[in-house]
């Protein structure tokens, strides 16, 4: 795990609101994020399972972080999600904690490709798989690799 992730203190507000936690003990590959079940994350008041949107949001967030963890990533480069596809394999009980792992599978100066999986922490059941594409160095915060260097990062 890179120094960036070890020193990561600030979650994006929505990550905090959901209760995402970086799995610092994780040894890889990629980056892992934990999300403990909670009532507000429920998709159905009667069934007490994670809402699909919660799983999707955690995959999106973890995917963004795994790009920032990539050795070629220049700190301060902004990024934007271009697209995200998620397959919901089965539902997950709110008694469980989700572990989402994202691995960056392709990275050049402009685009990064990520694959992610969500599984239950204790029973290790596959809950969802995801695939995302990100654009790096979006206009709001130019890519530091380009001549117009800019400060300021982006926590997606």
């Amino acid at each position: 795990m890179s120094l960036f992730l070890k020193s990561l203190k600030e979650l994006p507000p929505f990550g905090q609101a959901l209760g995402m936690v970086l799995d610092e003990a994780d040894t890889g590959p990629g980056v892992a994020v934990l999300l403990p079940g909670a009532e507000r994350l429920s998709g159905d008041a009667e069934e007490a399972v994670f809402h699909s949107g919660v799983i999707l949001a955690t995959i999106d967030n973890t995917a963004g972080w795994c790009i920032r963890d990539h050795p070629d990533y220049l700190e301060g480069t902004s990024m934007a999600t271009l697209d995200l596809r998620v397959d919901f394999v089965t539902s997950a009980s709110l008694d469980e904690t989700l572990r989402v792992r994202a691995v960056c599978e392709g990275f050049d100066g402009d685009v990064a490709f990520v694959r992610a999986t969500a599984e239950t922490l204790n029973t290790k059941v596959l809950i969802a798989t995801g695939q995302a594409t990100f654009m790096l160095g979006t206009p709001s915060t130019p890519n530091p690799a380009s001549p117009a260097t800019a400060k300021g990062g982006c926590l997606e």
Partner: peptide
Amino acid sequence: ADLIGNTNLPAMHGGVIGS
């Protein structure tokens, strides 16, 4: 405020949009 993903812009979290 707690639906934000990028505080610099600020922009809504991609996970909120997907949800």
